[in-house]
Write a protein that binds this DNA or RNA. Structure first.
Lengths: 339, 339
DNA sequence: TAAAATCACGCAAACGTTTGTCTGCAAAAT
DNA sequence: ATTTTGCAGACAAACGTTTGCGTGATTTTA
């Protein structure tokens, strides 16, 4: 039946002491007598007193809220990452304000606006596929609100970010296939505009060269990552004068399309390696024999940690030595259990 | 280089007018002259003025934040649901404070606490599997903060909730199998403690009876939903004196375990129907022939809508006719495309 | 025993905004 | 010419909390 929440004032009035005393008593300030403290605390809990967080946030300009903008929660990479973010936030007493851009640059802009008006203490962003300008993040710099990018990072200087280095994982993947005896290895890569595509390619090349093998660029084919696109690429692969005996695919979806397609052609014997996006891959019948793991949970945790560190950093120290956190999580190859 | 954000006060001082005038000018109040409005707005945008949301929230005790507590974001049901929640929140100008209980009752309690101290305007909850007491939600009633449960709802009276009715979908599923000619239909059900298990069973029974068939309770077997548990149940099914030609499984995971197991035994010919939890099922080779769809996105949207309606409802109207929203989203059967 | 230190608490300002009420002043109505 | 209306803007209170400073009262130290 209680209507309005209890305030510190009411407690003060009832106890006939000043608000400041009540405040200090509740916060265990040293200058308050033990008996007064007890009386205050007792009454406070009787009245179900809850400090008005809005007032406190307002008072010292902190919200203990970090904003997170990411493309799609339904992609398991992101839902796992947010899990890590949320866990760290929880531990460090922050809460997470969540928004998804649905890979729409316009919506992303609006979300940034909203985060700004909510005055989050910090922002975590994985940019949308379609985002091509990055000025909307500049506002946060002016407002002195730290921004940390993760996974999908914008190609600009002077930002904090956490991302995985796909080169290492790809290197391992190709190496693994070579060790298995494969000599002709195809790669279904993504659009060249993605940093990630570039890293995959580099890893591939390095693995070939370090094994004293010639790099054949025609064995890396770009795709638009759709099912149709994948089939088209597969046709190219299968008709290649050097038909690959193993294929590295851009992600698990592509792997699934490709595997299904080869099976429909009754082709076995091609080994697939993919990048781990889908946990469900473990439940499937025909899976890639290995996956490059990108540790989304770890990335999320790390990004959140950095952000909160940044938030709590002793103000603008001289401004000069503004260091930027650039954390790279190495990707590694995981051999899948054979079923 | 701007250090502290611009305030309405500074604008007032520069323009030599009062703060109230500035405030009204920015809010297009009718009692401010056009010229003054222009001057104020011009200067405001020049100074990159951003209203301090914390002050506003504090002033009229609203945060425009809704809290969401759910078990696991990595379960696609929930990540899809949150997507719907977030979309509605976005549309209606709210933001989403997210937290996951990881199906841990203790953590859930703490999260409720945190939501309370953050003074969210409303709370959306899908309770953890292990939650058995529900007093921690009572606090919100006292604080007059609306709570809406969705999907996993506590077995108590007088709450708002949105949940799917699995009975209808199950009825359709069994009916579908019967129409296909199956006469012996097994069901791998979940623990009896779940409301959902009960609904599945009811749907099953009704379908049988409405087709003038006898209901054989031994064809419904409870499982703990693990892989081992599923295999055990499957062994029972396959050795049953009436060996089922079709099986309804509790969820997609169970379906996958069961299908994989039958295939390992080189048994084909059993038709499976499941409940749609995993979008990835579409990419798989051997899938249930049909799924009961529970519309997580729709459920999320609906729940969020109800919550925000509740938040904005004209206060405690006499208290007497406190109506509770109990929305049931009918589940329906979806026939999966054959591959 | 006087001076200094310590204790326990009160006063009031401050955070940024909104909003009800009040005040001049000019134009319109009587 | 006086009253009324309407306009444009100012004043100040209010939201709940924290915190620097001040102030008596008591205890300790010299």
């Amino acid at each position: 039946m209680s209507d309005k929440p209890t305030t510190i004032k009411e407690i003060a009035k009832i106890l006939k002491i000043s608000v400041s005393t009540v405040s200090r008593a509740l916060n265990d300030h040293s200058s308050i007598g033990l008996t007064t403290k007890m009386r205050v605390k007792k009454l406070a809990s009787e009245l179900n007193y809850e400090p008005n967080q809005k007032a406190i946030q307002f008072l010292h300009g902190k919200s203990f809220i970090i904003g997170v903008i990411l493309p799609e929660l339904s992609e398991s990479f992101f839902s796992t990452a947010i899990s890590g973010i949320e866990d760290i936030a929880y531990k460090r007493n922050y809460t997470v304000l969540l928004a998804q851009s649905h890979d729409d640059a316009e919506r992303e802009k609006l979300l940034v606006e909203k985060m700004k008006t909510q005055r989050v203490d910090g922002l975590l962003v994985s940019v949308s596929k379609t985002t091509s300008t990055y000025e909307h993040f500049e506002i946060f710099k002016r407002l002195n609100i730290p921004v940390v990018f993760f996974d999908r990072i914008p190609p600009v200087k002077d930002i904090h970010y956490v991302a995985s280095n796909l080169e290492t994982g790809t290197y391992e993947a190709v190496n693994f296939l070579l060790k298995k005896g494969h000599r002709t290895i195809g790669m279904i890569n993504g659009p060249n505009t993605l940093v990630a595509s570039h890293e995959r390619k580099e890893g591939y090349i390095k693995a070939m060269l370090s094994n004293r093998l010639k790099f054949d660029p025609t064995l890396i084919i770009n795709s638009d990552l759709t099912e149709a696109g994948t089939i088209e690429v597969m046709d190219n692969m299968l008709n290649h004068r050097r038909k690959p005996t193993a294929i590295v695919t851009f992600n698990d979806y592509v792997a699934l399309f490709a595997i299904r397609y080869t099976r429909s052609l009754n082709l076995n014997g091609i080994d697939f390696v993919s990048y781990a996006n889908l946990p469900i891959i473990n439940y499937m019948d025909y899976t890639p024999i290995a996956s490059v793991e990108q540790f989304p949970y770890k990335q999320g945790k790390k990004a959140a940690d950095i952000l909160i560190d940044l938030i709590n950093k002793p103000k603008n120290e001289s401004g000069a030595d503004q260091a930027f956190f650039n954390v790279v999580v190495e990707s590694v190859l995981v051999i899948n259990d054979p079923k």
